[in-house]
Design a protein around this nucleic acid. Structure first.
Lengths: 229, 229
DNA sequence: GACGATTTAGACAAGGCTGTCTAAATTTGT
DNA sequence: ACAAATTTAGACAGCCTTGTCTAAATCGTC
């Protein structure tokens, strides 16, 4: 820490690496087995670490669990904001661009390992740690949803959409785009990529039917007849 | 069982009553604590029954859990089909009628005790009992969603809606109508009635913007300017 | 090569839970 | 009121888990 010669890791390398691998393994075990069913021995084994090391790093089971949730929230948020940065502000093909955005959001943030784990932990243990998950609610949906809403507001301002309430529209966008993945999510599964694309495509199409600029009433033809599904 | 004098309960009254109260108590405890964390002593106490009686009725913890899920699935399904029977086939005010339907569906089937419990158990333990929850998937969404889709198809056939794929429309209807309740559902909470109504109202409005009969192109004016939210 | 910090393996106590067993008490139907 | 079935309370063995402790081994750094 004194002489800044070390390449890019301040604390002892192996130390922090172990901390990471413990949190990672713990996330998996907590998800599979639930808090009560999670076994610290198993976590230690999956982390490639002795049980004592787990206790050295995190004190006890509950503190470990909290560390896991905090970690996952942080990483997922980072991913979501990175994806929001790819939102199509100046769309070429609005439908295709929104589908792409929705698919990226799902694949990189919601269906990936961290997203899946965080979702499951919230569902499973949310009621046991009210303050912890209130914190998640503020840091997660509380920050990401308005950010998405702002992007939709910008699209509306630019004349690409007709939206009353951007916050409502954002939530409905997410609801539509995931409409066909609900049962899979409930069961903790991971949808295949083509299912994600299909759901996003259908969702965006409906979204644009509701909020898209109406095609000029003159040339109103079967312009929506893309149906291949 | 021989002479059918008994009023309306075939098996010994107290016996079946106890079975019921055990399953009920078990549902609550399994939800709160997870399968691993659930304590049979506690279930017995909450059911007002001795521990041995729990074992007499259900054999062991796992069989008890399975009985709970089967029971909840059955009861929830019954509720959902009863509500589907109230779907507005001959709508007067389509928007109001669909909002009413959505609110009934939420209040009577999804947010009530059974619905909440079943949802939580599926989320929490779904991966641990693949066949059991595959069964739920077939009996639940596998039967109710097509039933709802059929109702939407009928509305479209009657000229009240413009729908390509009724199955997609049904899933999207559910997604839209619940769009604002997602975080509450995730955390296992029960939304207030006004939140349910709000979400349903916004959802139905968007649904009709997408699938409602287009107002005749002639008198196309700001007919959608109902905004009070 | 030597030093300090970290990690490891294993044993350990304390406590909790499941599922069984027994004998007594209670309920149910006749 | 009687007989059979059901329920109850309590004790019990067996197992698993958490969290602590100790002494040896390993790692990173100078």
């Amino acid at each position: 820490m004194r002489p800044g010669v070390s390449p890019d890791t301040f604390p002892p390398r192996g130390h922090e690496a172990k901390r990471l691998s413990i949190v990672d393994a713990a996330a998996g075990v907590f998800c599979r087995e639930g808090f009560a069913g999670a076994n610290i021995d198993l976590i230690a084994i999956e982390a490639g670490v002795s049980r004592q090391t787990v206790y050295n790093h995190h004190g006890d089971k509950e503190k470990l669990f909290i560390a896991v949730v905090r970690d996952l929230t942080e990483r997922c948020n980072a991913g979501i904001f990175a994806t929001i940065a790819t939102f199509p502000d100046q769309p070429g093909d609005l439908e295709a661009d929104l589908v792409g955005f929705a698919v990226r959001l799902n694949q990189n943030c919601i269906c990936n390992r961290d997203g899946k784990f965080l979702r499951k932990l919230i569902q499973t243990e949310g009621e046991r740690y009210p303050e912890l998950f209130a914190e998640w609610r503020e840091q997660g949906p509380g920050r990401t949803w308005p950010a998405i809403a702002a992007r939709f507001a910008r699209l509306a301002y630019g004349g690409h959409l007709t939206i009353d309430d951007p916050d409502v529209a954002a939530r409905q966008f997410l609801g539509l785009v995931n409409a066909e993945l609900q049962t899979t999510f409930m069961l903790g599964g991971t949808p295949r990529e083509d299912e994600v694309v299909q759901s996003a495509t259908n969702g965006v199409r409906t979204f644009l039917r509701a909020f898209g600029k109406r095609p000029s009433p003159a040339g109103a033809k079967k312009h929506t007849a893309l149906a291949n599904a």
